[in-house]
Amino acid sequence: MGRDKATLVFEGRTLVQRVVDAVGARCDPVFVVAAPGQSLPELPAEILRDEVRGVGPLLATARGLRAAADAGRDWAFVCAVDMPHLHARVIDELMAVALSTAAEVVLPWDGRDHYLTGVYRTALAERADQLVAAGERSMRALADACDTQRIVMEPRHELTNVNTPGDLA
């Protein structure tokens, strides 16, 4: 996109503020994994810094899962910052399935997997680290390496992510 998505302003707030508000309605604590030196607005969340840029979302997810596990949580909602319409009801729907199954990951599926809008067992932090050490960068590698439950959903506004400035229009 050519610029930091987290600080893009949409309807008066940055994308990261919007996502933290949506996630914070259901999750406590909330962690934001930021790139080294990335400037963020004041947030009601704990900021975790990646040590290295450009290694993909899997390393950041491992870090967030570990932080959630250290906070005593068995599950973590993992999402991207580029979801301006995210709503807590998505978390509720995924958690309802997570709590009724033995799956390690629960993802929405609306014709494609939404790896960065899912609930993950925090115990997966070590497996994610092992995948990163083996050269993997994608969330697909983690979902493929564990028991993943996909929830079929109609395409929904809440699952929309921003890939271009035009997507915010």
Rank of each mutant, 00 (worst) to 15 (best):
M83S: 10
V152F: 03
V90P: 04
A98P: 04
G111H: 03
A134P: 03
M83I: 09
A103I: 06
P108V: 04
D82P: 06
D129I: 08
Q130G: 12
D129T: 14
V106G: 00
C146Y: 00
R140D: 15
Y120G: 08
A143Y: 04
L99C: 06
R112W: 04
D147R: 12
V90M: 02
V97H: 04
I151S: 00
G118E: 03
A134D: 14
D92R: 02
G111R: 10
W109I: 03
V132S: 09
L116E: 08
H157N: 13
M153F: 07
Y115H: 15
G118D: 02
G111K: 04
L86M: 08
H114N: 10
L86E: 05
V105I: 12
D92S: 04
E136N: 07
M95P: 07
D113V: 13
L107S: 11
H157P: 11
Y120S: 04
A133G: 05
L116T: 05
M139C: 10
V119D: 01
E93S: 08
D92P: 05
R140G: 14
E126M: 09
S100D: 11
E126F: 06
V106P: 00
M153V: 05
G118N: 12
E126S: 15
G135P: 10
A96Y: 03
E93Y: 00
A96D: 11
V81W: 13
P155S: 01
D110M: 06
A141S: 12
R140K: 15
M153R: 13
A88W: 02
A145P: 11
A98M: 01
A141W: 00
A145Y: 00
P155F: 01
H85S: 12
V97A: 14
I151L: 09
W109K: 04
L86F: 12
L99N: 05
H157K: 15
L86Y: 11
T101K: 13
A96S: 10
P84H: 08
P84L: 04
V152C: 02
I151D: 00
T122V: 13
P108G: 10
A88I: 01
P108S: 09
M83L: 01
I151K: 01
L131Q: 06
T101C: 10
R127A: 15
L99D: 09
L99H: 08
V90D: 02
V81F: 13
L107V: 14
D82Y: 00
E126P: 14
L131E: 10
I151F: 02
L116H: 09
A98D: 10
R156M: 07
A134W: 00
V90Y: 03
T117D: 14
D129M: 10
R137Y: 06
M83V: 07
S138W: 00
V119M: 05
R156S: 03
T117H: 13
M139R: 09
A102W: 14
Q149P: 02
E154G: 01
D129L: 10
E136Q: 10
A141K: 04
T117G: 14
